[in-house]
Simulated scan of single mutants.
Amino acid sequence: MGLIGYVHIDDRWREMTDADRLDGETLFWLDFTHHEDDWPSVFQRLGGGAVHERHVKDSLNLAHPPYYDATSDYEMLIFRPLAGLQSNDLDLDTSASTLLLFAHGLVTIRPPDNGLFEDVGRRLHSQTPRQPETIVGVAHALLHRIVEEQMRVRGPLAMQLELWQQRLFGSEHGVKDWVPLLDLRGRLRRFSTILAEQLSSLTLWRSETELHISEHVGVRMNDVMEHIKRTAHDIDALQHDIEGMIQIYFSITGQRTNSIVQLLTIISVVFLPLNLIAGIFGMNFEQMPLLDHALGFWATAIGMAALGLATLLLLRLKRWI
């Protein structure tokens, strides 16, 4: 894979060529992928400095959490953008991307399937208005795109929860497979943790960085942090919605079960004395009252019906039905 890099010359950004070298004054941005595990040697051949071995390992670790660290030569910031550019993908899979900020340059190491960085690169050399003129400005452009993409998943997630609400409360048969909903809750919890770690890392970098941050870029960085907070708040709200949906569903299910048990209990209470009477008259005795009477059957049937109605009336007066 060819080198992806940009240099800022004559107040504009352009793609690097094979003849370009890092002279310590020209602003540059080198963009590597995790497949290029030899990126430190490429960086040094171009005139860059040495990178700590531990930071090199961290930069190639796709599972690394959001993190901030610094040396006397550079500052390292790790974020976890969503994998790919499919904002409607509810998997919420993220992969670590590393930003190494030098005094006059930026080195990024990212997953090969993440096009966010390439998108920012295209904007740089397309000469769109308000191009960043500092390394912190380029870093802000990258962080802004990462956070912007993370914010966009809120809409599809809210729609997914609406579908679950329809399944839970719009069907008489209920839901038998809870695995997808519980899996979604777990993914939201992990994503919320990542957002909190990103905010913590960015806050720490803002407080400890030795790089100059202009007032304009500082305001834009504040916007990025506010977007992270807003996204984290909405993700937490979605988690609470899922918990509430589950509790309401089981409450409705319990109420429905209680109604069924109540109906069966009423039927049992009404027919219990009638079964007793039927059992008594079913005894094998030769001499029993009304047994030989011409109206014995009808008298017994009317009495049993009256007893059943009286039982229902009593339950009604007690407000049990």
Results as ranks from 00 to 15, higher is better:
L3E: 09
L3A: 09
I4W: 07
G5L: 02
Y6H: 15
V7E: 10
D11M: 12
W13C: 07
W13F: 06
A19L: 09
A19W: 04
R21K: 10
G24R: 01
G24C: 03
E25K: 12
E25W: 11
L27H: 02
F28R: 01
W29L: 05
D31M: 03
H34D: 03
H34N: 04
H35F: 06
W39H: 08
P40S: 10
S41M: 12
G47I: 12
G49R: 09
H52Y: 11
R54Y: 13
H55N: 11
D58Y: 12
P65E: 06
Y68A: 04
Y68W: 06
A70H: 11
Y74H: 06
R80Y: 00
P81T: 02
L82G: 05
A83T: 13
S87L: 15
L90I: 03
A96K: 02
A103N: 11
V107T: 03
I109K: 14
P111Y: 02
P111M: 01
F117N: 04
V120F: 10
R122Y: 04
L124K: 03
H125F: 00
S126C: 00
P132Q: 02
T134L: 01
G137N: 01
G137V: 00
V138K: 08
H140A: 05
L142V: 12
L143V: 10
R145M: 09
Q150D: 04
P156Q: 00
A158Y: 02
E162G: 04
L163D: 14
Q166P: 01
E172L: 13
V175A: 03
L181G: 05
R189E: 08
S200Y: 03
L202W: 00
W205K: 11
R206W: 11
R206H: 11
R206N: 06
H212W: 10
V224S: 09
H227G: 11
T231C: 14
L238E: 13
Q239K: 11
M245Y: 14
T253P: 04
T253D: 13
T257R: 00
S259D: 15
L263R: 15
I267K: 05
F271H: 08
F271E: 12
L274G: 07
G279W: 00
N284M: 07
Q287P: 01
H293S: 13
L295C: 05
W298G: 14
W298P: 07
T300D: 06
A301D: 07
I302N: 12
G303N: 07
M304E: 07
A305C: 10
T311S: 11
L313V: 03
L313G: 07
I321Q: 01
